[in-house]
């Protein structure tokens, strides 16, 4: 893998809020045009990684270690001017709640134009307007010219999310970060929006980092999944392998807690006992060990990094990764049998 070619290259990233380290060494590599999903529960740090890449951490948050490169260029998070030039141009963001993600007192046209003008200061008003209409057409907003002068409250939830996508692709970024983009939407609208996003990034060759709690969305949309727990990526795996080759007990447990899988197998739901450790007090070794029924003594000493496949696309931080994976395969087979 050549570092220059990567759309996004995160090396050993650490982020702290005040004295508390919330991202504890994360590595993420995304190829151009690749769609990766980051899943995890609230507090796992998945949104913090997203905001960290944008350089938009909430007050008190800072990157303490590691490096981030976007489209082959290392990012200096101290240089606010260069950051502004990078945001919206090389990397862009789509947020969860489409209503609160748009300024309620500025027209839609104004908000799209802002994204264009900032990176193209020499564009004329006419050109910016044409580009805005072009973008709204691309995201499937009907009557785009007429809709420019409307305000966010006059748009439906699905249409607002389309506007946010239009803003995010305005300058053909190398990477688009989508933080729970469809959580606030109905399933039918969610399907429309994800389908749109899929076709757009495909056409424009944009790499996508989809941050979500919904494994179903990841399964349908992404090429690769990264599972986060307590500020670390505990497993990364190709999407087609997650269901019957999960090699980390946490991934396996997450899958077991999905009602759709339980309904299919007519089985009972399983949940993970206990709750994640507070970030102020993460145990040494594997953070999941206290809740893990696979845990052995060495788990509480240090986590293990295991590479599962030859292409290094499947990694898991578990001492017993091979055994867990074997069990996943068996369980997957059972489910298949129950379904048939």
């Amino acid at each position: 893998m050549n570092a220059e070619q990567l759309a996004l290259d995160i090396q050993h990233l650490k982020i702290s809020y005040g004295p508390v380290e919330v991202i504890r060494g994360v590595d993420i590599q995304v190829q151009p045009g690749e769609k990766i999903g980051i899943v995890g529960e609230s507090g796992s740090g998945k949104s913090t990684v997203a905001l960290g890449v944008m350089g938009l951490l909430a007050e008190g948050g800072r990157i303490t270690d590691g490096s981030i490169s976007i489209a082959g260029k290392p990012v200096n998070y101290e240089d606010e001017k260069r950051l502004n030039a990078m945001r919206g141009k090389d990397v862009s963001l789509v947020f969860q709640d489409p209503l609160s993600s748009l300024d309620p007192v500025k027209s839609i046209g104004n908000q799209i134009a802002e994204a264009i003008r900032w990176h193209n200061p020499r564009m004329s008003r006419r050109e910016i307007r044409d580009r805005a209409i072009q973008l709204l057409t691309a995201v499937g907003v009907p009557d785009p010219a007429g809709k420019l002068s409307q305000y966010p409250h006059e748009y439906s939830g699905g249409m607002r999310q389309r506007v946010l996508i239009a803003i995010a692709i305005a300058n053909d970024p190398a990477v688009l970060i989508a933080d729970e983009p469809t959580t606030a939407l109905d399933v039918t609208t969610q399907a429309q929006v994800m389908e749109l996003l899929d076709s757009l990034v495909e056409r424009l060759g944009i790499a996508v980092v989809l941050v979500t709690h919904d494994i179903g969305v990841v399964a349908e949309f992404c090429d690769r999944v990264l599972v986060m727990y307590s500020g670390r990526v505990v497993e990364q795996v190709r999407v087609e392998d997650i269901f019957d080759r999960a090699a980390h007990p946490y991934t396996a447990a997450l899958l077991d807690s999905l009602p759709s899988r339980a309904a299919e197998a007519h089985g009972e739901l399983k949940w993970i006992p206990g709750s994640p450790p507070p970030m102020t007090d993460v145990p040494p070794g594997c953070a999941f060990a206290p809740r893990c029924h696979w845990a052995v003594e060495e788990c509480s000493v240090q986590p293990a990094a295991r590479v599962i496949d030859a292409q290094k696309l499947h990694t898991a931080e578990c001492h017993r990764a091979e055994e867990v994976q074997a069990a996943s395969r068996q369980a997957g087979g059972e489910k298949e049998a129950a379904h048939a």
């Binding site: 439906s156 699905g158 249409m159 109905d186 399933v187 039918t188 609208t189 969610q190 399907a191 429309q192 389908e195 919904d214 494994i215 179903g216 969305v217 990841v218 399964a219 349908e220 999407v239 087609e240 269901f243 019957d244 899958l255 999905l258 759709s260 899988r261 299919e264 379904h339």
Partner: peptide
């Protein structure tokens, strides 16, 4: 359409074919 639109956390081969509706819920 509603059921098919729900994200389906199963391997690609077993997934339901998605029916995408036109128009908006409201």
């Amino acid at each position: 359409s509603l059921i098919s639109a729900a994200p389906d956390p199963r391997p690609a081969g077993k997934r339901r074919e998605r029916i995408v509706l036109r128009g908006e819920p409201q």
